[in-house]
Design a protein around this nucleic acid. Structure first.
Lengths: 342, 342
DNA sequence: TTGTATGCGTTATCAT
DNA sequence: ATGATAACGCATACAA
């Protein structure tokens, strides 16, 4: 059923039917009722492509997910998108998902822009000095970044959590508990969020007068296996760490396994603080959360990012918009004072 | 840059330019070269909505992800989609993602069908007696199901793994190792895959002459927390199980935690077999995998499902297509003979 | 308050 | 081998 058929049946012009359905004020209320009932009855929906062509809008937002060379799909993306899609369904938008190898990203963005299949994009996983920002500005495609660039935070729109502050505070807590050998298990530090977290960690150690040791800093995909390998390696060192700071829950599961394997008890022999993105499959809550953690809901971030982008599309003059989310530190069962004389 | 502008610049008609770009055979090769070069130079891409309107195809596949009432986003979906998107990018399709509350699924499918924004859909997470199959058939929307219905497997297209066989074999292995109290930690059994797995488990116990105890069957979202709770509960029973059969790696991480907490050693005191979907964040491989597992790559399934759907769209007469994937049992470190006299 | 006519950017049909 | 023109289904400027 299309507009012509519907209007023929009603004995009205396509124009009137279109106006009635789109809530134009000049339509007679009785007519509008008739039209809406008929539309409902035949479950008529305007053809997306036709209305898009007529209006110049696609009512679609693109999410471009970078796949790194290790072909790992980060569950964070799924959770973020689950949040974003809430915003889209509220406001009548659709979501177009593209996964892309990092080396062909630029051409994908160019293609998306010239095809006109989306009204805007969400940029995931910004790197340190990310070239996509300049590209998107040049392409005139509205965008919001989940994260920030490191050099420049003012002339584009982003939503980010306060990575540096979170890891500064987490490190400081561990130091206050008496730990001086603190191992950082971080994400890939070519990514901006991980770079910021390391900054917070290093700054805190500096401020507390503790030395920063390259032996105690690991980075890579935050998989369970990598967490395990990093922690196993660290614990085998002659001057092993007494605490871990881990950039994700999933990575921390591997760290926890390594601690168990070494015959140690987490929260007693070894302290662990994680950053908790509040993934729905890995809830770290309850009266006493399993892990002491800095927490920030990535699903919530997704919803906010999406709303921000839709606002920018509606009112381009208001951009750039930015939002910095806090990640408060909550105490769980995985931290305690350092054990002397290990 | 649109077709008119491009053809004006070239001094050709829109028709010829369009034909050249779409590889129509009647175009002079020199002309085609000129056109393609110009298109590349201006990075011209046909407007998606316009070409879609003209051809009647959207070159887009819809993925409708059901969100259950607990608002949990299963990482499996992300991994499956990562596989599917490989197929789409190879064949020039885009992916439209919709997350939907289970109670409003029917209206979403109807809306998608009438809007004509996709050429076909992938159905995720089929339930026992899933009403979506009949609905989609009625709507005439091409579809492939990741999984199957229980009653009828012949008049629609699906790709599934052999859930029943996998869990039958896993159960049998545990029995062969001497276990008789085997606890099943399953996904929500309103979902078809979990229902089939339970069938395999029950059948194997029956065939081995062992009793099936309701106390040893847990089901729910396969989160870490639920795995932990189920296993903790089971281990606290007076006649506690000596083995667990867990429907996912993530759930098994919770089971592993419960085993540790009970002061037991996995693979020695307690045996565990999991189903491993080979999620990229949770690799269970290496010389001796951490878990004994039935394995089947869900990313691979995603790619195959997508290809199957595109084939069906191209050649509707060939449908229905079906594919049953095997999930071989591979031995890891988490299983061993039952300990006597616990 | 409703209707007519035009345009959105392609592809497809029919001509030459 | 190329071009003029219609058609896809809708929204909207202009007319009544």
């Amino acid at each position: 059923m299309n507009l012509k058929q519907l209007s023929d049946q009603l004995g009205l012009s396509q124009t009137t039917v279109s106006r009635a359905l789109n809530n134009y004020p000049e339509v007679n209320e009785d007519t509008r009722e008739r039209v809406k009932n008929a539309a409902r009855k035949h479950s008529y929906r305007p053809n997306t492509r036709a209305s898009g062509l007529a209006t110049g809008k696609s009512m679609t937002i693109g999410h471009i997910i970078p796949m790194n060379s290790t072909e790992v799909f980060n569950p964070i993306f799924g959770e973020f998108i689950a949040g974003a899609s809430r915003a889209y369904s509220k406001r009548g938008y659709e979501l177009s998902l593209t996964m892309v190898q990092e080396d062909s990203e630029e051409s994908i963005y160019r293609e998306i822009a010239s095809k006109g299949s989306v009204d805007g994009v969400i940029v995931h996983a910004p790197r340190v000095n990310d070239s996509r920002i300049a590209l998107l500005q040049q392409l005139q495609l509205p965008f919001v970044i989940h994260g920030r660039d490191n050099s420049n935070e003012t002339d584009y729109s982003w939503i980010d959590m306060n990575n540096r502050r979170a890891f500064y505070q987490a490190t400081k807590l561990l130091v206050d508990l008496g730990h001086s050998r603190i191992c950082l298990v971080n994400g890939s530090e070519s990514l901006n969020f991980a770079w910021r977290r390391r900054l917070g960690y290093v700054d805190a150690l500096d401020d507390e007068g503790l030395s920063v040791s390259a032996d105690l800093m690991y980075s890579g995909d935050l998989t369970e296996a990598n967490g395990y390998n990093a922690a196993s390696d660290a614990l085998a060192q002659s001057d092993a760490p007494t605490a871990f700071l881990v950039s994700s829950y999933v990575g921390a599961l591997g760290v926890r396994r390594a601690i168990h394997n070494a015959g140690l008890v987490m929260g007693k022999d070894i302290s662990v603080i994680i950053h908790d993105d509040e993934l729905s499959y890995f809830q770290n809550d309850g009266d006493i959360p399993q892990f002491t953690a800095t927490r920030s809901s990535v699903r919530d971030a997704g919803e906010r990012a999406a709303m921000m982008l839709l606002d920018i599309i509606d009112q381009p003059d208001k951009s750039p918009l930015t939002e910095l989310l806090d990640a408060p530190l909550t105490i769980g069962a995985s931290t305690g004072p350092v054990k002397k004389l290990m």
